[in-house]
Each structure stands twice: as C-alpha cells, then as structure tokens.
C-alpha cells in the first residue's frame, strides 16, 4: 500500500472484456470530469467498450451504495468507480 492519491476502477461485463482486468488503480491527484477520465481510460486500455447499452458507470461507496454520475460530473481522488456489467432483467 502507498499513500498515492488516485481512483479505483472496478470493471464488469463489457468493460471487463475491454480492460482485461477486474480492478485498476489510476493515480490522480486532481479532480477530473467523468468525460475526461473516460478519455484517459480509453488511452490506457487502447480500446472503447463501444456504445453498449449495459456499460454504465457509477460512483460507489460501501456505506452509501452506488450513485449514478453524468459525463460532466466531477470525480475526485479517493473515489471508487464501478463500470457496470449487465443490469439483470429478472
């Protein structure tokens, strides 16, 4: 463990396929919009999960649960972002 600041990314579904991993720590000391963050992620993994309808992103906190975010919302260091897989249509 280090005290490096950053964002934890957790991938499932199509995002998991694109990234090839389940979890990734992205060092980052400044806040950033989701839109900009997505560009960074795209360049790191050299891919885009595409316009898949099940590829949602949300902030997650183990106590308060998930919170949906939009492209212009700010993501701060210390956050966990979930890249969601399929939403089960039971």
């Amino acid at each position: 463990m280090t005290n490096e600041k950053g964002i934890i990314l957790k991938f499932s579904g199509p995002w998991r396929t694109v990234s090839g991993i389940e979890e990734y720590f992205l060092p980052m000391s400044e806040s950033i919009t989701l839109k900009e963050l997505m560009k960074k992620i795209g360049s790191i993994f050299e891919a885009d999960p595409g316009p898949r309808s099940d590829g949602f992103v949300c902030l997650f906190d183990e106590h308060s649960g998930p919170r949906a975010i939009r492209p212009d919302d700010i993501v701060s260091p210390g956050s966990t972002l979930l890249f969601l897989g399929t939403v089960e249509s039971g």
Partner: peptide, 25 residues
C-alpha cells in the same frame, strides 16, 4: 452483503428494467 451491494449496483440504480435496451439489442 458488501459484495452484493457492489455487484448489484446497476440493479439498485436502475431496477431490472435497466436491462431493457440490452434485451432489445
């Protein structure tokens, strides 16, 4: 519970009808 909360985040945010577009696709 912690695992299910995280893995079920999409269902919590959008309910089961969060899968409508994928089902269409």
């Amino acid at each position: 519970n912690a695992l299910l909360k995280e893995k079920g985040a999409g269902m919590n945010l959008y309910g089961t009808s969060g899968g409508m577009s994928l089902c269409e696709e």
